[in-house]
Design a protein around this nucleic acid. Sequence first.
DNA 1: AAGTTCTGTTTATGGCGTACACAGGGTGTA
DNA 2: TACACCCTGTGTACGCCATAAACAGAACTT
Lengths: 286, 286
Amino acid sequence: MTRGRAGDPDHVVELLWREGGAEPRPGLSLDRIVRAGVELADAEGLAGLSMRKVAERLGFTTMSLYRHVPGREQLIDLMCDEVAGETAGGAAAAGDGWRAQLEACARAGWELRRRHPWLAEVRGGRHVPGPNTIARYEQMLSTVADTGLTPAEVIAVVGLVGRFVDSEALLLVEAAETERRSGVSEEEWWGGRETLFERLYGYPTLTRLWEQGGFDRPEDPFEFGLARLLDGIELLVQKRYESRDEIKECVVCGAPVDQPAAGRPRAYCSASCRQRAYRRRTAGQD
Amino acid sequence: MTRGRAGDPDHVVELLWREGGAEPRPGLSLDRIVRAGVELADAEGLAGLSMRKVAERLGFTTMSLYRHVPGREQLIDLMCDEVAGETAGGAAAAGDGWRAQLEACARAGWELRRRHPWLAEVRGGRHVPGPNTIARYEQMLSTVADTGLTPAEVIAVVGLVGRFVDSEALLLVEAAETERRSGVSEEEWWGGRETLFERLYGYPTLTRLWEQGGFDRPEDPFEFGLARLLDGIELLVQKRYESRDEIKECVVCGAPVDQPAAGRPRAYCSASCRQRAYRRRTAGQD
DNA sequence: AAGTTCTGTTTATGGCGTACACAGGGTGTA
DNA sequence: TACACCCTGTGTACGCCATAAACAGAACTT
């Protein structure tokens, strides 16, 4: 079933978007392997996720896994989508503005990475997204879609926020993982680096900030960064909003729009485009 | 010399901050190993950096390296500081505002990661910084230090921008590395994922953005993100500036400051603190 | 009943970091 | 001059990793 298709990306697409049909039978199964992988990575981090250990945990030989999963990389893809389905995607109420909703998405991602720290450790491009991952992405996109930003900007905003969450999460994961392995806390370890500190006195700004306690009572990196990021995005949204009367193209079909000499500027080229935009706005809001 | 100190972080401090004394002798040396490591990682990425290959490149046995470097991790630390010393740190002119200077720092980091992509791949906490790394950090801190932000905020801003550069660089590295190994370009690969695309039509926003060409003509993630980030930071700086007349504590010594009933609000508790602040501001501007 | 497919095992390959014991030459001391 | 030591480089070995290939038995199809 899986044999010989290790290099075939379409295979993992099939696995990701599989029908959950097959009733649980004794023996191995894709779901069992994925779940065991998640448990293992939760406990030992992504570096601790080896095919041997997954198999051991399930009471089978290493190679038996390859009957169900093409390889380790693909197992990780499957694990990612598995946990992406955990939160119902509740986020914020639909009545809130885009900013509150986008912030809620970021926090949901943050929370997910708190429960499954290895998510932030997943690296390497060309990860095929599964249904749960896509659902989250779609939600973020739709949150930003009606801000008046261009399509490319919408995509860029969502990517920016997503990568921010990931990179901040990775920071914490690495610290936690190192603590776990070494048994020495982060503060303890850095506190013991006196041979380093004594070389830092020559740097005036660093020393001053240190003396003023900037390193002792730091800002929360996630909260601080998220606030700055959203501020920056909001500024762009405002700029686009203020220049909305300069719109020369219909936001739906792209055709040129005649602007009236006075009164509210037009965004749509025709009533049908306006109606189409309305339907899109309300679509999916069950 | 190195033997038996593999677990000792102080050792790598000594190596990083070593005096460049020792004249080049035949045989191995720390510098030669580090340079070979940089070359190798430049060519094959951090994953391709193995002790075996470094040794091979130098014409020695693998274990000979361990006479000069405690281990792979520490070699990477040394490589990082080696390349951090490459750019003279020119950045922007001192006359420019903090924003232009901070942007220049970010671009310098970006440029460095373009030349040494593996820099972005370096992971794991507790990396001991060397003199070149610290010099860059000091420069960024001093750039943001005179914005009126609190010490903790200054540190948070520098960290935020630094991690942003890193995470965006990592994105490109991973793509490039995968292309190199697979021989298939990113566009080609994603273009061939039709079995995936046909499952995405059900998502309205995603589909619409796709149809509008948002994925074909994307924003540059680095430029877009940097602009948003700096905008957000500028907003904070403005907020702090506007509320500067509410300052209740001397920004130098932290003592309470009596505010005059009228006129320009005081920032310093005394003339000596004002003078000290001036000296700090002008220090290091050779 | 025969053939095929699915599932799990066994064995083996080639890569990695690095611990450990050793060898030879240069240097310092008696 | 003779001895000891240490610095540098070597060879071997261990335990991890992913996974390729050939095989064995059970179950399902025709």
